[in-house]
Amino acid sequence: MELTSGLLLAIMVLAAISSIQFYKGRKLNLQLMEFYLRSIEEVVKPEDKDYVWLGGYIGFRANYKINRDNIRKFEYTLTLLPRHSILYFPISLVTSRHDKLYIVVRPFAQIKREAHLIQKGYYRLKPGIENEPLLQKEEVEIAGKKYEALFEKRRDMENLKALLENLPNPKDIKHIALTPKTNVFYVQMKPDPDTIKETVEKIVRFANEKLKESPFSS
Rank of each mutant, 00 (worst) to 15 (best):
K146I: 13
E47A: 09
L81Q: 07
V44Q: 07
E152K: 14
L78T: 07
K212Y: 06
F216D: 01
I173C: 00
V52L: 13
R26G: 01
F60L: 11
G55N: 07
T182W: 05
P168F: 05
E158S: 10
L9N: 03
A149G: 12
N70Q: 06
L8Y: 14
Y51S: 02
E213R: 15
D172M: 02
L81C: 09
N63M: 08
I40D: 02
H98N: 14
M12L: 12
E165Q: 15
D192F: 03
R61S: 08
Y76D: 02
P82A: 12
D50Y: 14
K171L: 04
Y64I: 04
I129M: 03
L163R: 01
S19V: 15
S214V: 12
E75T: 10
D99Y: 03
Y64F: 13
I71R: 14
A177H: 06
I111H: 04
P193K: 14
H84A: 03
P191R: 15
P127C: 07
I111R: 05
R155G: 05
K146T: 14
K126F: 10
R106L: 13
L167F: 02
D172I: 00
L117D: 08
P193M: 08
Y36G: 01
Y51N: 02
L101N: 02
I17Q: 04
A15E: 00
I11T: 11
M157T: 11
G25D: 02
E2N: 11
D192R: 12
V44A: 03
T79F: 02
V204D: 00
L150W: 01
A162S: 13
I173R: 00
K212G: 09
A177R: 08
E34G: 04
T77W: 02
R154Y: 06
D172N: 15
M189D: 01
A15L: 15
K27S: 15
E139N: 09
R61K: 14
T182L: 10
L3T: 06
E138G: 02
I11S: 13
L87T: 13
I103F: 08
L30K: 10
M157G: 03
S214E: 15
Q110L: 13
L101F: 04
R97T: 07
N169F: 07
F89G: 09
D192M: 08
F89N: 13
R106Q: 06
K112W: 03
K27H: 11
A149N: 11
K120D: 05
G59N: 14
V52N: 02
F22W: 15
A207S: 04
L80V: 06
K126Y: 12
Q119M: 13
N166V: 00
L211K: 09
Y76G: 04
N208I: 06
A62N: 07
L37Y: 10
L14G: 00
L81M: 13
K112G: 01
